[in-house]
Amino acid sequence: MFKILRKKTLNNDVTLMDIEAMDVARKALPGQFIIFRIDEQGERIPLTIADTDAQTGAVTIIFQQVGSSTKMLAAMSEGDYILDFVGPLGSPSHLEGIERACIIGGGVGCAIAYPQAKYLHEKGAVVDVIVGFRNKDLVILEEELRAASDNLYITTDDGSYGEKGFVTDRLKALLDDGVVYDEVIAIGPVPMMKFVSKLTREYGVKTTVSLNPIMIDGTGMCGGCRVKVGGEMKFACVDGPEFDGHQVDFDELMTRNAFYQEQERGHACRLTGGVNNG
């Protein structure tokens, strides 16, 4: 059993939690994730490790409530326990040798990008962070990201906060201004990663993306997380989740991720007892 040490609501849809898991806290590196299961009936759900504290054993997760499992988790309170919490899974990010990076986060993807920004910033690299949200109410982690970057750019689709536009607009402006990056790291919704990769390819900038296919075990035994990278089949949970954005077949990932959409929508939510159409 794993204790919820802290809970913080970041916006209507996004919650932060610290979970007590010393083994994970001690080992986790940027880019890695955990899999949790709330209770006996629960599914195994992957979430990125947003932060860790090796002293207290706290592992921070930040998640968007999209379906039954994330909603149930968000409804739990400090002091409650979840049944399973395993990690750190996946291969850590390759951040060695980067002197200037642009880290791009879309929506809750900011949470996934945050540990990389923090790591690089602490190592003395110049870190530009561009984060995009649909509107002002959805902005999360602004303070944390500011502290972990040299320049923070916030964009909103509707212009209600920061610059109006998409993260790709800001990135293009920076690249056009002649900023040279060793690497662009883009994490967020699949279409966002796809468009960032398309843009950076034109500019010849190395780009890393973090993929979120549907996973079950997270240890390389089911093949459910297979993605196509450079025409080859890769298992995101062990070979990734980070891959070269210029090699990823994003369209295939999008179709595969939508597979269970209808069924999940019809799933009777154990929280409300009713059918959950969220």
Binding site: Q41, G42, E43, M221, C222, G224, M233, F259, Y260
Partner: peptide, 28 residues
């Protein structure tokens, strides 16, 4: 990579370990 292709491991894990055939369980 088409939808509806599974490794036997994925299919059987969903069914056996995760009890996907039982509607009381969340795994689809």
């Amino acid at each position: 990579s088409l939808l509806g292709v599974y490794s036997a491991n994925e299919f059987l894990t969903r069914m056996n370990l995760m009890h996907a055939y039982d509607s009381a369980y969340d795994t689809p």
